[in-house]
Amino acid sequence: MFLTEGIKSFGKYFILLGKTFRKPENWKEYRKALARDLERLGLNSIGIVSIISLFVGAVVTIQTAYNLDDPLVPDYYIGIATRESIILEFSPTIICLILSGKVGSNIASTLGSMRVSEQIDALEVMGVNPAAYLIMPKIIAMVFFNPLLITISMFLGILGGYFAAEFAGVLAPVDYLQGIQSSFNPFFITYALIKTVVFSFIIVTVSAYYGFYVKGGAIEVGINATKAVVSSSIAIIVANYILTQILLV
């Protein structure tokens, strides 16, 4: 029972994807929608992502410093460890999990209320493909904007670490600066950005799926927005494992 329901939802999700990637009726209107979505879903996330990144970067540095408090381990190792945790895991994965809450619930509830107020039906009767018009611009917005957002997050996370060194006094700033420049593997950035692109795609499509197929009213919109966040978070965590296995091992 549970399994068949799961398989059915999975099938429905892919059917929705199929409907989404169709030729736009009018490129100009889709570009307008893209601009709106870039602002609503992308630019509006810069603030929260910046604050979180700065503080978490600082905290990671302090904690690493405490844990590596051993005379045999040189201090600049703290810089290396901070950099790697931020680039590999914190920025791409944790920030995307936060975005799945912020952006995912936004997408699911917007589409859900459009569904229950028949706005999606209205689009359909006009001859517009509602899946393509409503979902494709959001996918493009997130898949192209989030790598930039995550790069900002990496930079600010590492900067937060520097502030911790400077003001919390857990290590000398010069050691930190030496650390973040030591034994750097540029592929880690590629790995992080690949993850970001995949996670962004998951956030938009999974949330859109839950919003698009709402049946009922306000309560169901709320329920589906929650489901959207839960499911996209789980999907991100699983994809994170699979991608890491493929790309890093």
Partner: peptide, 14 residues
């Protein structure tokens, strides 16, 4: 459908 116009019972304005 581009030849159709429809007024929904609940308006369905965007």
């Amino acid at each position: 459908r581009t030849e159709m116009g429809m007024v929904f019972q609940g308006n369905a304005l965007f």
